[in-house]
């Protein structure tokens, strides 16, 4: 008897169960914890679908970074909740929101169910393109990301930077240019301090390894960058490092370096290799790795800056 289908069905049921719990959880902290668990289960689903690249991203971003982001947001909401009188939404409003959500989920489901049997796919073209301009890369995912749909990949990083700009812009006027509030209390516990001193060297190495190995095996700049970001955040939570001032030059340069280098090489490709974002085939692999190095840096800086929030006035936490 093959137990695999039963395991898969249990896993799917578990994902749906945790998703439901995330929605109906009474307090926001339980909802966030459930959401992190949901991300981890989803990563296992991606492994079962033979998509280890997506699984790595989901585990690092869906399970890790988003969880921290939500916990920090929840902490800020708690602070502001004491100032504003919390008003429970009326039953009619809740019903309206539920109806909208069901309508959205229902129409998405209807669209997916009404797809023709052989769903339209760009996979063959992408695979062919990965053979050509992305040649030299053993990991077809990276080849597609960096060569077939390179413009999209570049714009994704621009979105990340726009998000950071958005976070920064909600800060108070007089705090502009200052550093975001520190992550934790001034005297962190010994356990956290120990973790923050032991983990980053190992995690940093693994992050760079995941990025480097992404050329030929599952991995890549986003997964590696998320790990590096996590290591920086652990150091900031233990107060070994405080968030840098948002007007510091190196911070801003690091933020934009990924898309900037990508764009510069893309423009150079228009002149040297015939069209926008084309690579000379002999140099494709080193060029892609060069771009990805700066993408790694951008991601590793942008994610912690999203978590750190806007600049804070002195003395305000």
């Amino acid at each position: 008897m093959n137990v695999q289908p039963f395991l898969d069905i249990s896993l799917a049921a578990l994902v749906i169960g945790v998703a439901l719990f995330t929605i109906i959880a009474k307090d926001e902290f339980s909802a966030v914890v459930a959401y992190v668990a949901y991300g981890i289960f989803l990563a296992i689903v991606w492994v079962r679908l033979y998509a280890p690249d997506v699984a790595l991203t989901e585990a690092a971003v869906g399970g890790g970074v988003t969880g921290v982001l939500l916990v920090m947001a929840g902490k800020r909401l708690d602070v502001s909740a004491t100032m504003v009188v919390a008003k429970k939404p009326s039953v009619a409003f809740s019903a309206f929101v539920a109806a909208c959500s069901i309508l959205l989920a229902g129409s998405l489901a209807a669209v997916i169910l009404s797809l023709p049997d052989a769903a339209p796919s760009l996979a063959p073209q992408a695979a062919a393109a990965a053979q050509g301009p992305g040649a030299g890369l053993g990991n077809p995912i990276t080849a597609v990301l960096m060569s077939y749909r390179s413009f999209d990949t570049m714009l994704e990083k621009v979105v990340l930077i726009l998000a950071v700009v958005g976070v920064w812009s909600v800060g108070a006027d007089e705090a502009w240019g200052a550093a975001p509030a520190p992550f934790g209390p001034a005297t962190p516990s010994d356990a956290l301090l120990f973790l923050a001193k032991t983990l980053p060297p190992i995690g940093g190495l693994i992050g760079v390894h995941i990025f480097w190995t992404g050329a030929d095996e599952p991995g890549g700049a986003f997964q590696g960058g998320a790990l590096l970001a996590a290591m920086w955040m652990v150091a900031m939570m233990a107060r070994l490092a405080d968030p840098p001032p948002i007007n510091s030059r190196w911070l801003r340069l690091a933020l934009i370096s990924g898309p900037a280098v990508f764009l510069a090489i893309g423009v150079a490709g228009a002149m040297l290799a015939g069209h926008f974002f084309a690579y000379p085939s002999a140099l494709a692999k080193p060029l892609i790795l060069f771009i990805e190095t700066f993408m790694l840096l951008s991601i590793a800086v942008a994610l912690p800056m999203l978590v750190a929030g806007p600049a804070a006035r002195k003395g305000v936490r």
């Binding site: 516990s189 010994d190 356990a191 956290l192 120990f194 973790l195 032991t198 983990l199 190992i202």
Partner: peptide, 20 residues
């Protein structure tokens, strides 16, 4: 082995922090 060691490290630290 490293996966186990890392889980040991993070598990023990997290347990200490929650305990405190």
């Amino acid at each position: 082995i490293m996966i186990w060691v890392l889980v040991l490290l993070s598990g023990a630290s997290a347990a200490q922090m929650i305990g405190r």
